[in-house]
Simulated assay, not measured.
Amino acid sequence: MSSDALHFDRDYPQLVGDRGLIEPAPRRVRGYFDGELVFDTIGARYVWEIQYYPQYYIPVSDVRMKCLEDEEHVQKLQFGSSRLYTLASSKRTLMSAARLYDTGPVTNYMRFEWDALDWFEEDEPIILHPRNPYVRVDTLRSHRHVKVELDGVVLANTRSSIILFETGLPTRYYIDRTDVDFSHLEPSKTESICPYKGVTSGYWSAKVGEAAHPDIAWAYDYPLREVGPIAGTIAFYNEKLDISIDDVRLPRPHTIFA
């Protein structure tokens, strides 16, 4: 097929991972509840309950069942029949925090509510949800000319950006603060979490004339080490303003994720 026959409404690769997909997870996975170990396994499975990212399902043989109490509540769900369990520690109990499947493709696997536990892959904490093994995140220093404008006002102008390529999301352009005009920007209290980049350290809203534009830029001052080069730089939402690369204005995508 010639390139002329291809047409995309986006300029980035889409996510891979169909709903219902089950894959092995080749890493040690542990979960703690109030500091007490609930499971320790090298036999976890990635299970895609939705398309965008998987959840971890844990073999029941690697779960410390003394931490759990059967609620005698049977449910039939996407992957089969399951029973709900309460999590208990010396400090508290948490209802319906886990479910054990009795039938289907994940028979004898437990699924835990993510926010109930502190999760670790090997010895590294993971946040928000498991990382999709089909997602790639790359940061590349570039001397392409990047200009950011909002209603005709230039907010950033640089020839030394860090371009972040993340599967399933628009390309992001991280810009040194010395190349950003903060005269139209005001700090925001917004915070977001990304399992690939970490926790944002700040957002900015913009005011141009009488128009207010909330949360158009963000920064990771202490990102995860895999994307260390973006530390302290500022990125702007392609979706909310105009970004030009080498004097060519990019189309505004529809997806909004930092």
Results as ranks from 00 to 15, higher is better:
Asp4Gly: 05
Asp4Trp: 11
Asp9Ile: 07
Arg10Asn: 07
Asp11Gly: 07
Asp11Pro: 08
Gln14Thr: 13
Leu15Thr: 12
Gly17Ile: 01
Gly17Asn: 03
Arg19Met: 13
Gly20Thr: 02
Glu23Ser: 10
Glu23Pro: 05
Arg28His: 15
Tyr32Phe: 14
Phe39Asp: 07
Thr41Pro: 03
Ile42His: 15
Ala44Arg: 02
Arg45Ile: 02
Arg45Ser: 10
Tyr46Ser: 03
Trp48His: 09
Trp48Ser: 06
Val63His: 00
Cys67His: 15
Leu68Ala: 05
Glu71Ala: 02
Ser81Leu: 12
Ser82Trp: 10
Leu84Glu: 09
Thr86Asp: 07
Thr86Val: 06
Ser90His: 12
Thr93Trp: 02
Ala97Asn: 06
Ala98Ser: 07
Tyr101Leu: 05
Asp102Leu: 12
Pro105His: 04
Glu113Cys: 03
Glu113Val: 09
Glu113Ser: 09
Ala116Val: 00
Leu117Lys: 01
Asp118Cys: 15
Trp119Ser: 13
Glu121Asp: 15
Glu121Gly: 14
Glu124Met: 14
Ile127Cys: 07
Arg131Thr: 09
Asn132Ser: 09
Tyr134Arg: 14
Leu140Asp: 06
Ser142Gln: 00
Val146Cys: 06
Leu150Thr: 11
Val154Tyr: 07
Arg159Thr: 03
Ser160Ile: 00
Thr171Met: 08
Tyr173Leu: 02
Tyr173Asn: 03
Ile175Met: 02
Thr178Lys: 04
Asp179Phe: 00
Asp179Gln: 01
Phe182Asp: 13
His184Phe: 12
Thr190Leu: 07
Gly198Ile: 03
Thr200Pro: 01
Lys207Phe: 01
Gly209Pro: 12
Ala211Val: 15
Ala212Phe: 15
Ala217Met: 10
Trp218His: 01
Trp218Tyr: 05
Trp218Pro: 00
Tyr220Ala: 02
Val227Arg: 03
Gly232Tyr: 06
Gly232Phe: 04
Thr233Arg: 04
Ile234Pro: 00
Ile234Thr: 08
Phe236Ile: 08
Phe236Trp: 05
Asn238Ser: 13
Ser244Phe: 07
Ser244Cys: 12
Leu250Asn: 06
Pro251Ile: 08
His254Tyr: 06
Thr255Ser: 12
Thr255Ala: 13
Ile256Pro: 06
